[in-house]
């Protein structure tokens, strides 16, 4: 089998090697490969992110007509809904990575969780803040303790909890496992947030974007919103990939491949 250690040091590991050695080689080999390859992958996320978000913002601010009831304040939707979507998507992705990290002990899954948490927390914060700014003129209040707003606030605390847990445990493997566990446990909040507007009476309205049922939006209002959600998702991928590279470099700062690439590169 081939284990890629980089362009210059491709090595063939014999299948006759015993299992422990083979696994260690595989693990050692995957880090420099990921570090190099992810720099190339990033462009495929950055370009669509910039294009989609630019289209969504320009269309949302300029070309989309004002809402028949709310007027121009509804343009906050083009930030608020993609941020809220990303807050749920990000945590779900972290939970999936958590399962992979706990069951397969894949180091990159642990690193993904550590890198995604600050990005997810940022967009959860954005969803809450833009929602409050939007709520003041339309509802008549910045904040209420209804089921939707409260559960989204709990999501922010879960993200912050993962970040704090990661920082407070010195051993990277132990920190990775603890964060994986918290990601899996906390994912129960995701369906609660999504269905809160159905299960309970809330001040917040129902979902704008749904997998089932047509959305109640004019098509020329809807396309920029979908582009915004896609653009934010690509942005999340891009930011998380960069965060993973930095995390990887930090975790393996004493290893030979890091020395080779950075110190002599």
């Amino acid at each position: 089998m081939h284990v890629r250690l980089g362009h210059d040091e491709k090595t063939v590991v014999s299948l006759t090697m015993d299992k422990g050695v083979k696994q260690r080689f595989h693990r050692l080999g995957s880090s420099p490969y990921f570090y190099d390859a992810s720099a190339r992958w990033a462009i495929w996320l950055a370009v669509p992110a910039v294009i989609c978000i630019a289209y969504a913002v320009i269309a949302g601010l300029v070309y989309v007509p004002p809402d028949y009831q709310q007027g121009d304040v509804f343009r906050i939707l083009y930030i608020h809904v993609p941020s809220a979507w990303l807050s749920l998507f990000g945590y779900t992705a972290m939970a999936v990575a958590g399962v992979v990290a706990l069951v397969w002990r894949l180091k990159l899954a642990e690193i993904f969780i550590a890198a995604a948490a600050p990005v997810g927390a940022s967009f959860t914060f954005l969803a809450l803040v833009t929602g409050a700014i939007w709520g003041e003129p339309t509802w008549g209040t910045y904040w209420v303790w209804d089921a939707r707003l409260t559960s989204e606030l709990i999501l922010l605390f879960l993200y912050l909890g993962v970040i704090a847990l990661h920082r407070s445990i010195a051993s990277p493997r132990a920190a990775g496992r603890a964060c994986a566990l918290l990601s899996i446990v906390g994912v129960i909040n995701v369906p609660i947030i999504h269905y809160s507007v159905v299960w309970w009476t809330t001040l917040h309205q129902g979902a704008t974007l749904g997998l089932t049922g047509g959305s109640n939006m004019d098509a020329d209002m809807l396309w920029p919103l979908l582009a915004g959600a896609l653009g934010f998702t690509c942005l999340f991928g891009w930011l998380t990939l960069w965060g993973m590279r930095v995390q990887l470099l930090w975790r393996e700062r004493r290893s030979r491949w890091v020395m080779k690439r950075i110190a002599h590169g």
């Binding site: 809402d67 028949y68 339309t138 509802w139 001040l203 109640n216 004019d218 209002m221």
Partner: peptide, 29 residues
């Protein structure tokens, strides 16, 4: 406090659909 629904449309579409004068026979949720 005002509650709004997740229907968004332009004033032109609203006029065409004669919306805004919604039926008051619908539970808020």
């Amino acid at each position: 406090l005002a509650k709004h629904d997740s229907t968004y449309m332009s004033p032109d579409t609203a006029r065409a659909l004669n919306a805004g004068t919604s039926d008051a026979c619908m539970p808020a949720n």
